[in-house]
Computed example of a mutant assay.
Amino acid sequence: YVLFEILMLAAAAAFVRLWPATGWRTTLAATCWSLPVFDAFAIAQDVAALLAVIAGTLILLNRRRDFAAGLLFSLCAIKFHLFLLMPVWILARRMGRFACGLVVGGAALGVLSLAAAGPGGFRAFVHTAFSSAVNPGLAVMPNLNGLFHGNGRLELAAAMAVAALVFLVARRSSQSWALAATLSGGLLTSHHAYVADCALLLPALLVMVSETDRAWQRYLALLLLTPVVFIGVYAGPAVLVTRLSLVVLCMSFAAVPRRPLTDPPLSASFPSADRASRQ
């Protein structure tokens, strides 16, 4: 347990240092006051590792090393249910080389898993994945499954709407904004998610803070970076506020920044901190 927590702390530090959309001081502040990040450490979840992978992926994409980015991103298979909208992002952005890297990395991980668990490992995984025992606490899930109280038809219809929204956003936005919308939509459509998994919204919120040219989006992102909204998960009926806030966040990505898409990400909200972090 101690070794795992040390590794996750190192992964969180890597995310803080590597995240390209904002300076490291801004990223550090947002990470430290994030309730989902705290919850992930409290219950020994591996979300910090995913944050580091996402940061590395965006860096590689910015350097136009799409195949390597896809190869790295394949590590997110450890929680693939949180990234169900990644194919939508790939199709919308026409990221063929990224997809190739993702497939190669996924195949390698599949071979390693097969070697470790044997032929029966896949059957055991499928059985476990569809077992009701792995989906306790529906009442506190901050996603569409929780919002619609397990109504599969409503969840599917809403998930399709979210996927369509992400596709449209990805087609007409910057790479980082498209990724942010995909992460936000992925959490909503995950079917299985808890507060710790909301740490994956940290990159999305930082992108919104740094790239938006609309004050209301910046205020929304700053609000969701604080613990206030996520406390609702622990406050009974107030969990509805958390779920609706995450729906609003996803929808807000439709308001794409109005400057040209070729512009590099800006750190408009924390200019002094970001300048200091580059010195």
Rank of each mutant, 00 (worst) to 15 (best):
R64C: 11
G56T: 05
I43N: 13
L9M: 11
R17A: 08
L84S: 14
T57L: 11
G101Y: 02
A21R: 08
L72F: 04
T27C: 00
L82A: 01
A77V: 14
G101V: 03
L85D: 09
A12V: 05
F38N: 02
L72C: 03
I59V: 07
W89V: 12
G96K: 04
G96N: 04
T26P: 03
L91W: 02
G56K: 02
R25Y: 09
I59R: 07
L35M: 13
L84D: 04
T31K: 12
C32G: 06
P87G: 07
L60S: 03
L7A: 06
Q45V: 03
V103W: 06
A69D: 02
W19I: 00
A11V: 15
T22R: 08
M86I: 13
V47R: 00
A10F: 13
R97G: 10
W19H: 01
A49I: 07
F67A: 14
A12K: 02
L50I: 09
R25Q: 06
A11T: 11
F80G: 06
D46N: 13
A30C: 14
V53F: 05
K79S: 14
V103D: 08
A13N: 11
P119N: 14
D66R: 05
G101E: 02
L85M: 15
L102I: 12
G23C: 06
V47Y: 00
A44D: 10
A68T: 02
A44Q: 11
I54Y: 06
A14G: 11
G121A: 15
D46T: 12
